[in-house]
Design a protein around this nucleic acid. Structure first.
Length: 257
DNA sequence: ATGGTGGGTAGCCCA
């Protein structure tokens, strides 16, 4: 089964793209970020018509996350990070089949040293504590989402710009990601790929996509128990070529039975 | 160093 993550940058605008992509790619599970929709406006009927059930947790204008599953029940839904007060709708978890799915829209952080950057690091620490507990009860886990962190120099188009001191690549952010991986999680893409220059996000400005000036910040992490089952992982650049696209492309992992 | 583009929303914030 294929499990994907996609920051759609407004589901209201991108529902036609999501529809097209669900029909062509046919993922089994999808985590969406930046839906930017309050729950009553979530298009669950339109997705159901395509065969996808959905659970979601959104707000007006900003943030918003959802989990979709094709012809499968979605159980044990967790909205937000347990015990962490947060007005921003950035986390949702649920069980599909025998796999626990955790979908994260990690804080962007604006700039190193800002108040939002502090919130990003606190938020990531809350996620770490949550996942440590979650993994005990759900060893078969996929943690996916827009991490707003490029793991290493291979994941940025220009390492002389994107390094310590820069948001999305600062040492503290990368260390926070490493602390998540240290729980027993693995970047599925890097289980099979060592190449640099494969990205999931390209700025809308300066023709960044055409010039492949991107970052790999959308990740699918698999737990120790699923590591051997994660037989393939990639990023589907195609929706980024469509008219009026999201600035992110879907990242996905395929789990063998 | 700045500002470039896009989304949501109603004069800006956020990415």
């Amino acid at each position: 089964m294929r499990i994907a993550s996609w920051n759609v940058n407004s589901l209201n605008v991108r529902l036609p793209h999501l529809t097209q992509w669900l029909q062509s790619f046919a993922p089994d599970v999808v985590g969406l970020q930046e839906t930017k929709l309050e729950d009553p406006r979530f298009p669950d009927d339109a997705l159901a018509a395509l065969g996808y059930r959905s659970v979601f947790c959104g707000q007006k204008t900003y943030n918003g996350v959802a989990i979709l599953a094709r012809e499968r029940a979605i159980d044990q839904v967790q909205y937000g990070i347990p015990g962490f007060e947060d007005e921003q709708k950035r986390a949702i978890a649920a069980t599909v089949g025998d796999v626990r799915i955790v979908n994260l829209y990690v804080v962007n952080g604006q700039d190193v040293g800002t108040e939002k950057y502090g919130y990003k690091l606190r938020w990531l620490e809350a996620v770490r504590a949550w996942l440590a507990d979650e993994l005990v009860r759900h060893p078969r886990m996929v943690v996916l989402g827009d991490f707003n962190i490029a793991p290493d120099a291979r994941d940025v188009h220009d390492p002389t710009v994107w390094n310590d001191g820069h948001i999305l690549t600062s040492a503290a952010e990368r260390e926070a990601l490493q602390r998540l991986l240290a729980l027993g999680l693995h970047d599925a893409f890097r289980l099979h790929r060592e190449d640099a220059g494969i990205f999931s996000w390209w700025d809308y400005r300066q023709a960044a996509f055409r010039r492949n000036l991107g970052l790999r910040i959308d990740l699918t992490l698999v737990s120790d128990a699923l590591r051997a089952h994660a037989v393939e992982a990639d990023i589907d650049r195609e929706p980024r070529t469509w008219d009026r696209p999201s600035d992110h492309a879907p990242a996905w992992v395929r789990l063998s039975a």
